[in-house]
Design a protein around this nucleic acid. Structure first.
Lengths: 200, 200
DNA sequence: GTCTATAGCTTGATAGAC
DNA sequence: GTCTATCAAGCTATAGAC
């Protein structure tokens, strides 16, 4: 049977989901085999380096996708607040409206390989840098831009954690809504949806 | 040797650390045995239900400690903003200044037992309820109090995730600093540490 | 209460047929 | 390229001596 049962893209998609759901140690070859439809030996044919190589391939692919679909669009022409708004929409898709946890988070548990930890660190740094970029373009000072960018990452990751723990995705959606206001100087004021005051 | 090599408290402390660092699947009996100084059989003598019972004991103990040391003090007399400020200090200790990740987060990865998932859910709900409580006492409306409380949990968890991934604890410490302003209506304005404007 | 020894299963990984 | 069969090592869990 010299025919691929599953193409590279689909294979990596399934692998990503397993690592995302179970983390590195929890992503056993049995689970991976079941999720991909490939037997152990076939997986080693595709990834001679074994599980470690699978994890790095998954991280690499996620990184590439994230940069081209999320970070690059963030640098294109247009109002900073509009670009952040678009990023929020893409992030909602990427994270399944809050139902998918973050691969970087899942893989950051435990000792694991140094290469994996470094990859995670670099991915977050790249994301942070892109956010600092728009924030500065919107008119915020370098120091404030860095604070706001870190705050944005904190909120996104935290909301995904809360969603995984409680099943509640509203906080995540709210975080996305508030990103333009958080990351830019000149975004319009929040919608006054209610007439009641904040006082009890 | 009818003598305990390690008392219940220390044993649970070590167990907690292993589960916190490696998650449920990563917390192998070998690692647990090494961390506690007890052989496998001795661990089963203390926890006949095995690893599952260990995880639940660890969750139960963390929950009890958290309620009595963090949540109960939050309901005692005094200015709401002062109480939140105190909680922030206790949280800093609890999470090792940001260097310790959250047990609830670590154990929320993977399928795991239903009892464990429910325990995690209930713990977050209790925490949320306590935060809503102070927020309302400070004068915030029920709706706003709930929003702010969720936002606080999101930021705390997110900052811990970022600290684990990047080693950077400053965002966590900043989150704690901002908790009084976030969770209460009447806290004083942030310290103007610099004279520079936010504009670039 | 802790230990050694062991059972039985699962893990990550390989060899070789097709 | 995928498979079956197999390996050594790891895993959770148990039996029984002290």
């Amino acid at each position: 049977m010299p025919v691929r049962k599953i193409d590279e893209g689909q294979l990596l998609d399934r692998l990503t989901e397993v690592f995302r759901l179970y983390g590195y140690e929890g992503a056993s070859l049995s689970r991976i085999s079941e999720a991909t439809g490939l037997k152990r030996a076939s997986l080693y044919h595709r990834f001679p380096g074994g599980k470690k190589e699978m994890a790095e391939a998954v991280l690499q692919r996620a990184d590439t996708w994230f940069v081209s679909h999320i970070l690059v669009p963030l640098t294109e022409p247009g109002e900073p607040s509009d670009r952040v708004h678009e990023m929020a929409n893409r992030l909602s898709d990427f994270y399944g409206g809050g139902h998918h946890s973050c691969l970087l988070d899942s893989l950051s548990l435990g000792d694991e390989d140094v290469a994996i930890r470094q990859h995670i660190d670099r991915s977050f740094t790249a994301w942070l840098g892109a956010l600092v970029g728009v924030a500065r373009e919107s008119g915020l000072s370098p120091a404030t831009a860095k604070l706001r960018a870190e705050e944005a990452l904190v909120r996104i990751q935290g909301a995904l954690v809360m969603a995984r723990a409680t099943g509640e995705t509203q906080p995540f959606l709210r975080v996305l809504q508030n990103l333009p206001e958080l990351l830019t100087l000149d975004s319009e004021k929040p919608k006054p949806k209610t007439k009641r005051s904040n006082k009890s």
